[in-house]
Design a binder for these strands. Structure first.
Lengths: 131, 131
DNA sequence: CTGGGTGCAAACTCTTTGCATTCGG
DNA sequence: CCGAATGCAAAGAGTTTGCACCCAG
């Protein structure tokens, strides 16, 4: 009953997702709007939200920032540069913190975990002037 | 030159912070406004932001939620109930993930880490009807 | 054809800001 | 007294929604 339809807009938005680096919806809109001015903001939000529901993209909410979208749907974490704000993927396996300990501490049944790293990106480490 | 001044509003807002459970600014405003209708939204935001700058409270940005404030400024993490959304503190020491490995993976100089747990709170685990 | 998708604009929510007034120290 | 802190209202920024029109299948 719900055959997802393929549209130009979706293709462009997905392309923006791959081209831009963990963009916010507004950044995606900027990219898309430059190339196809007729695409509306609402569509960008609806399509991104749809991608996230269908597992084609991830919603990423990092500290001090709006919602961001990530086309990399594999399990991974993010590093956030304290200087320029650049976000990068971290493809490491984090040894899950002692779930049992956490569970005992708060009484919850733990079944998930999210992490975010902070640091200085290579560019900012070299170019001290930016900090 | 910048002697921080003690005001009724700050006292009430701090009380709200301790009474409410990781409230959003809007929730704090609700609590405060009930008791002192004259306090304005702007003041709540300004005071909370001030608390966070002065280290009297922490800003907590959890997945899928607005900014929340926490009067507990000790190092701790949060658990988020998938059912009711209730947030609890987790006072455990997480073995910091291999910083070296992370650093190698993305090239950043890692100097910080944030984590969030997901799960089911005791109340929801019992009362299955809520999920 | 048909209904899922889109554009537009208005509505909403959360947060910030300018400015005159208040009041803590 | 003096200037930090408030209240009010208006402005922003990001996101959602109602509705008529459009186009992929």
């Amino acid at each position: 009953m719900a055959a997802e339809r393929q549209t130009k807009q979706k293709a462009i938005i997905y392309e923006a997702l791959k081209t831009l680096d963990h963009p916010t919806a507004t950044e995606v809109y900027g990219y898309v709007h430059e190339r196809y001015p007729s695409v509306s903001r609402a569509t960008v939000f609806r399509v991104l939200s749809g991608f996230s529901s269908s597992g084609r993209a991830l919603e990423v909410r990092l500290a001090g920032s709006d919602m961001r979208y990530d086309y990399n749907v594999n399990e991974h974490y993010h590093v956030h540069c304290r200087c320029c704000g650049k976000i990068a993927d971290v493809e490491v396996t984090i040894k899950t913190p002692a779930t049992k300990t956490v569970s005992e501490s708060c009484g919850y049944l733990i079944d998930g975990f999210a992490a975010e790293f902070f640091g200085i990106c290579p560019a900012c480490a070299e170019n001290k002037s930016c900090c």
